[in-house]
Design a protein around this nucleic acid. Structure first.
Lengths: 359, 359
DNA sequence: TTGTAAGCGTTATCAA
DNA sequence: TTGATAACGCTTACAA
C-alpha cells in the first residue's frame, strides 16, 4: 500500500538525522557522500532516509552551493523540427551529466529573448545555450556573459561576442550545391530566405543570422568564373509565409532573365516554395531545379525526392551541451567555434535548365 | 558601456537596503510590492535597485514561499513535431502566466519517466504535465500526485489516476475516417501502430496508450452492420521502424483476403507505411487507400495529398497548461477529462478498393 | 510605516 | 569522526 499522508510537509535532513540519531551535519555528509563518515553511521542514515522516503530539496541545495545543475536553453521556435532535434541532443547530453534543462521559446523575437535571458539567470541556471535571434541586438547576451555564467551559442554565432559556438559548417555544402547546379547548366540561381532584413544591405554582410549569411556565402563562392551570375535580384528575403513566398517565386520566374534554380534557406521556406511551384503548375526539376537547406524525413516521399543539404543538428545540440558542461568545469573547449559538417544529399530535384524559349 | 565588474558577487536585497538606507525587510517589501511601504521609501528602494542592477534570486525566493513558479513537462519525444507543437502551446500559456517550463524527454521509456518525475519534484516544480509512456506502470505518477503537487495528463489518460487530462477526442474522427472508407467500398480495413503490446491482448482494452486505444475504438465502432470485418489479423502493432513497418504492410497485403485500406496511427508510422508502399510499387489510392492519424504540413506536397485526422495539438498544450495553472490557484477545472475535437481532412488518398482479382 | 529576528533546507566551517 | 553553528538570499511574523 504505502503511506498516504496527504499534503505532507516535506521530509528534511533534520528528520532523517533525528531518526538516525545523529546531527544534521552528519546526516547531510552521509547522504551527500562527502566528508568523513563512519560506515556504521552511513548505513544508519541511509536506512533512515529510505524509511522516510527522503528526497533532498534541490532548491535549498542550490542556494548554498551556488550551482543549480541546470542549464537554460533559448531557441527561436521549438515547434520547428530543426530546433526540436537540437533540443533533444542538448537534453540527452545534459541528462547524462546529471544536468537538466530549462527551455525558453522566443518566437524569434529579440524582446522575448531578452526577457528569457533575465528569467533564466534569475532562476540561477548554471549556464546558457542560445540560438540568438539577432546578431545585432546582443547587449543582453553580453550582459549574461558578464555575469560570469557560461554561454554557448547554438547554430548561429555573434561577431564580437567572445563565447564558444557550435554551428553547422554550411558554406561548403552550399557551395557544393551551387556547383552542382552550375554543372547542370544553371546560370540563374536564386536564394530564398525567411529572414527579414529590416532594410539592411546584405552585400558584404553581416546578416542578422549567421547561419543564413553562411549559406549565401557558400553560394556566392561558387559563382566566380562559372558563367553564373551574382545578382541582387536573385537573392530574396522575407519569405515568411505561404503568400509572401509565392510572390517571391513568381517574381523570380518572371524576371527578364528568369531564375532556373531555387535554393530554399530552410524547411519551412522549402515547403512554401514547393507549394507555390505546384500552384503555378511548374514541375521540379523539369521546369525549375530545387535545393533545400534542411533535411526532412518526408523528402523521399515527395515527387521527385528533394536534393537537400543535410545537417547534423542533433549532434550540434549534443556538442553545444558538452561545450557548456566543459565550461562549467572551468575547462576550455578545443575550438572556440566548433563546426560540424553538412552534407549534400543528392536526390532528384536538380535537372538541366529549361531552355529560355521552348524553340 | 555599462559596468564590467567581472565575476561579481550577486547583488542582494541587503545591498539594495543599505544603499537606500532602509532595512532588508522594507527593501524586500518595496521590491515585492506587498505589505505597506511609504511612497518615498518605495521610490528610494527602486532607485537603489536600479542603480545596483539588482536581480532577485528566484531560488531563495522559492525556498520560503514554497512555490517556484515553474512547471515540469514530461513528454516521450520532443523531436516529434506532435509534442514539439504541444510544448509550444504549454510554453506560451505558461509564460503569459509568469511561469516557466522545465522540460524532460523520456524517449518513451517508463524508467526515464520515473526518473524525470523524481528530478522535477526534487527541483520543486509547482506542478507537472505528463504524457505518460504507459497506462500500466503509473506508480510514480500516483506518488507524484500524492505529494500534493498538481498533475495534468497530456494527450493520454490513465484509468484509475484521478487527475485532469487534456486529450484529443480522436475516436469520432477515427469512426468518420473508417465510415468514409466503408462508404468507398472497403471491407478489409487495417490499423497499424508503433505501440509494442508486450503480449497484452488488445481486445477489450486497455492498451498502454489511451490515445491509440481511442483510435482503435473509433474504428471498431464504425464496423458493425457495414459488412466490413473486425479481425485480429487486421490490427497490427510494433511498427516501430522502417523495416518492421514494411514487413507488416507486406503481411497485410498478402493475406488470403488482403487489406485494401490502411490507417496509420501517427505521422512516423504513416511515413514508413508510405515508404513501404512505394518500395512495393503500390500506388495510393489506386492500389491501397490510406489515412493517417496526424497532420503534417507536408501532406499537401505528397502525391496524392493524404487524407488525415488533423489534431489541435497546440491547443491541447495550451489547455493542459491552463488546467495546471487553475489547479495551482486551487481552482477546479470544469471537466476532469477535457477533449478537443479532431477533424478529418479529406484529401485524396481514399479511393475505391481494387477488385480482388483483376478480372 | 518600519525594523528586528526567525525561519526555509541545505552545505560548509570549525571545534571538539 | 562528529556536532554546533553560521552561512546562502529571501520572506514574514511580530514589535516598535
Amino acid at each position: 500500500m504505502g503511506r498516504s499522508n496527504n499534503r505532507r510537509r516535506d521530509v528534511t535532513v533534520a528528520d532523517v538525522a533525528r531518526l538516525a540519531g545523529v546531527s544534521k551535519a552528519t546526516a547531510s555528509r552521509a547522504l551527500g557522500g562527502y566528508g568523513a563518515v563512519s560506515e556504521a553511521v552511513r548505513k544508519r542514515v541511509s536506512a533512515a532516509a529510505a524509511e522516510l522516503d527522503y528526497r533532498p530539496n534541490e532548491l535549498a541545495r542550490s542556494m548554498n552551493t551556488g550551482r543549480s545543475r541546470s542549464m537554460g536553453v533559448i531557441v527561436g521556435d521549438i515547434e520547428n523540427a530543426y530546433f526540436g532535434l537540437a533540443m533533444r541532443g542538448i537534453s540527452d547530453a545534459a541528462k547524462s551529466a546529471g544536468y537538466d534543462v530549462i527551455l525558453a521559446n522566443t518566437s524569434e523575437s529579440v524582446d522575448a529573448e531578452i526577457d528569457a535571458v533575465k528569467v533564466l539567470l534569475d532562476k540561477r541556471v548554471d549556464g546558457l545555450i542560445v540560438a540568438p535571434a539577432s546578431a545585432y541586438e546582443t547587449d543582453h547576451l553580453q550582459e549574461a556573459h558578464a555575469t560570469g555564467r557560461p554561454l554557448v551559442l547554438l547554430d548561429r554565432r555573434v561577431e564580437g561576442l567572445d563565447v564558444p559556438s557550435v554551428e553547422v559548417d554550411i558554406a561548403p555544402a552550399a557551395q557544393a550545391a551551387t556547383a552542382q547546379l552550375i554543372h547542370s547548366g544553371h546560370r540563374r540561381i536564386a536564394f530564398i530566405s525567411a529572414l527579414t532584413t529590416d532594410g539592411e544591405s546584405f552585400t558584404g554582410f553581416p546578416l542578422g543570422v549567421s547561419s543564413v549569411a553562411d549559406r549565401l556565402d557558400g553560394i556566392l563562392r561558387a559563382l566566380p568564373g562559372s558563367g553564373a551570375e551574382s545578382s541582387t535580384e536573385l537573392i530574396r528575403f522575407g519569405a515568411t509565409n505561404r503568400e509572401s513566398t509565392r510572390r517571391i517565386v513568381e517574381e523570380l520566374l518572371a524576371l527578364p532573365d528568369p531564375a532556373t534554380a531555387l535554393l530554399a534557406s530552410d524547411s519551412l521556406v522549402a515547403m512554401n516554395v514547393l507549394l507555390a511551384l505546384r500552384e503555378l503548375g511548374l514541375g521540379v526539376p523539369d521546369d525549375v531545379s530545387f535545393v533545400a537547406f534542411d533535411d526532412f524525413t518526408w523528402a523521399e516521399l515527395i515527387t521527385p525526392p528533394l536534393t537537400m543539404v543535410s545537417q547534423p543538428i542533433y549532434e550540434v545540440g549534443v556538442a553545444a551541451a558538452e561545450t557548456l558542461l566543459l565550461l562549467l568545469r572551468n575547462e576550455t573547449p578545443e575550438e572556440q567555434r566548433r563546426r560540424l559538417v553538412a552534407q549534400l544529399v543528392n536526390l532528384e530535384s536538380i535537372g538541366r535548365p529549361r531552355s529560355p524559349d521552348p524553340r
